[in-house]
Design a protein around this nucleic acid. Structure first.
Lengths: 226, 226
DNA sequence: TCGAGGCGGCAATGGTATTCTCCCAATTGG
DNA sequence: CCAATTGGGAGAATACCATTGCCGCCTCGA
């Protein structure tokens, strides 16, 4: 189980395909570079401002490209943000998989997954791994995205969801948890963990916040004999 | 426990206070009426369009009042939406409390709460109770609100949260669940239930959606011996 | 009756996304 | 090597909205 880069549907980033297919096939690599420049600029702005409220104009200026070009590669701002989101998920999937693969016991793997996913959105005070981005703004934007383009978000989350499904199935096979339907169980866990982070923003007093561990314990009990 | 209208901080709607305090005290009732007309118009538009993306202008036209007046009562569109949100929560609290009070057994009361809260956001195919509004757009907007004004959302949710806390405490006192900290447990339940609804929008296949009952069972197991 | 504040009507401003238009410069085919 | 085609830069023009400002009426209290 859990082979190296086992993304469900091929491994090519979805945004890349979309952006590139708009250009001629011969110019593919140049097109990718240009699209990438937009993405890089957007990531920078996002990291600096700590929010997704940069303007297209800023992205243009920063990337040293033209407005025209931007709309040639992206259908609009939402598409750009979706692309950022997809990139971030990809990054995170690798990160989570790494942590998970450090464990061998099925429950320990699930545990590692839950903790890491919960921390996924948090702004790490500790210096970020080189090249990793501040995920907070993206996570926040994700909920808006989930309202307006649920299918897209689901699609982008696929890698993370898929990994979790595997872990749940493994644990179930080992009789460590008893779930009648692995998919539903996985969905429940993913939701609980992710929105537990989101819900924390409604709680001022930091001591009242729900930690990753607490959330995990709650999930674990939920999984024992569904 | 669970006295009739036991809102934590007085029972006067918060938006009403805000809107009214902007006017002279003598003209209070007239001011309330005017503010209410704006709210009514906004509710209508929201119900019709199924979203909060109506324009201020539409609210003005529909309510037969002036732009000027609008900004006299509300600091901006966000305040209006917050007011709608608060009203809706109030409505729902009454509704939930009613269902809960039909039960006497602590766990049954908790169960009733969870189910009702989960359904809270769903667009009821069944004709709505007269005067009740389509809560979907509000619920959707709530997540945006939670990003931008977490404290306000928390404040508005207070009545619902408070009710849940009581129920959890009652159940704990009766030794039906064992939670070290009722507040945290309540928060966890509320989050799980509410976001379980929200998460469902990421699942196309209706048969894979998480039902209110499933979510409740998950919570219940989570509460048994924390 | 007079004056001031409440309020309707509406034009003006400001911030953004998105589209349009013009033009240059490089590539390419003859 | 030249001219046609086209990718792409600059940025003006549009389209929306929210929000503010300004003018003048009209009412209500003194």
């Amino acid at each position: 189980m859990a082979e190296a880069g086992a993304t469900p549907e091929g491994t090519e980033p979805a945004w890349r395909q979309r952006a590139v297919s708009r250009s001629l096939d011969s110019a593919r690599s140049r097109a990718e570079k240009r699209a990438q420049r937009f993405l890089d600029a957007a990531f920078e702005l996002m990291d600096e401002k700590g929010s997704t409220e940069f303007t297209i104009q800023e992205v243009i200026d920063r990337s040293g490209q033209s407005l025209r070009g931007f709309y040639q590669y992206f259908d609009g701002k939402d598409e750009l943000l979706l692309a950022l989101f997809e990139e971030t998920v990809r990054e995170s999937t690798d990160d989570i998989r790494e942590v998970v693969d450090a464990e061998t016991e099925p429950l320990a793997r699930l545990h590692a997954y839950a903790i890491r996913l919960h921390e996924w959105c948090e702004p790490p005070d500790k210096p970020r791994k080189r090249g990793a981005h501040n995920r907070r703004p993206i996570s926040e934007f994700m909920v808006q995205l989930a309202v307006n383009h649920p299918e897209r978000v689901k699609g982008a989350m696929e890698p993370v969801s898929f990994l979790l499904l595997e872990l749940v199935q493994d644990a179930a096979r080992a009789n460590l948890i008893s779930v009648p339907d692995a998919r539903r169980a996985a969905a429940l866990v993913q939701q609980t963990v992710m929105y537990s982070w989101f819900g924390n923003r409604l709680i001022q007093n930091p001591r009242m916040r729900l930690s990753a561990e607490e959330t995990w314990e709650f999930c674990l009990r939920g999984l024992r004999s569904t």
